[in-house]
Amino acid sequence: MLGQVVTATTAAEQFALRRRSPVQRVQHVLHSYPAISPFLVLVISFAVFTMINPRFAQPNSLSLVLQQVAVIGALAVGQTLIILTAGIDLSVGAVTILAMMLSAKLAEGNGLPGILAVLVGIALGVAAGALNGTLVTRIGLPPFIVTLGTLSVFTAIGLLYTRGQSVQAVDLPALLNWTGETFAVGRFRITAGVVLVAVLYVVVGFALANTAWGRHVYAVGDDKEAARLAGIRVDRVLVSVYVIAGAIYGLTAWILIGRAGAASPNAITDANLESITAVVIGGTSLFGGRGAVLGTLLGALIVGFFRSGLSLAGVDDQYRVLAVGLLVLVAVAVDQWIRRVRA
């Protein structure tokens, strides 16, 4: 009897293998390696934009893309962590601006030393993340609502605190502007901020892929109740994610000062949507549990390529908005499709 059973299984397995069409194979590969589709989009857009205007591929314009992408790319790391837990963070921009304005105001005109100002900015991000995380876990409100609320709260506090006024780079200690400093790498011009962002990706990517904490982030985003029953402290994981995301926003505030050459309460108004866009184009699922920061990096670069490529092609900037919007829709549709994969 056992023999019969085993044969039947093997036959069934062979049947399953034989039935797999080329489309299903693609679905399977994408399911195992979700970063493939954004990677292909990146490569293709690079080729197309270079064909339209060869200046696109020159080191100086690519260097500019990197510098432009750095801030949103950094924020998108935090956003990725939160989206992996099936959450969403609408307060990204507000927290970053508040952290930036706080450290700039405190450091303005020989106030706080630069290093302390940076740390204060990160601490503010941590506090904001702890607030978001606590509201999500303790009160059990949906992340969308919590961060919609804290978005307004932090924006208002930022404007009230600064009375809408900017702080110029000349009034700031050198360390705060350091992230904007450029140096040459071959024929590329890289800023210290870009290097910081690269380090951020490596560290968070490593933690997600190779530590127990990373496993727990995925498990919680996948199925909260299953994770709880499997013995994971779900609330702790969630709070840790919001706190780490907040710390990343605080660090990004520093990168933003260097990039903008000033601290202005009206900077990065589109940070929320742009960071979510990078995450989604990068193949991370809005339903949680699926994705990686590598995809987000590719997503952020794709948006940067479209901005640079279309402007070098002499196309109206609205076409970039249009193209990115379409990419988001396609990315979400692909995600839905690959989620339906079955053995």
Partner: peptide
């Protein structure tokens, strides 16, 4: 150790990760 009616597995994680979920080995 419990197998709950809902199984309590994380679908996107692989078999080994699920077996060791919450008590990962370093």
């Amino acid at each position: 150790e419990t197998v709950y009616q809902t199984l309590a597995v994380a679908p996107a994680l692989d078999i080994a990760s699920n077996l060791y979920l919450g008590r990962e080995r370093l």
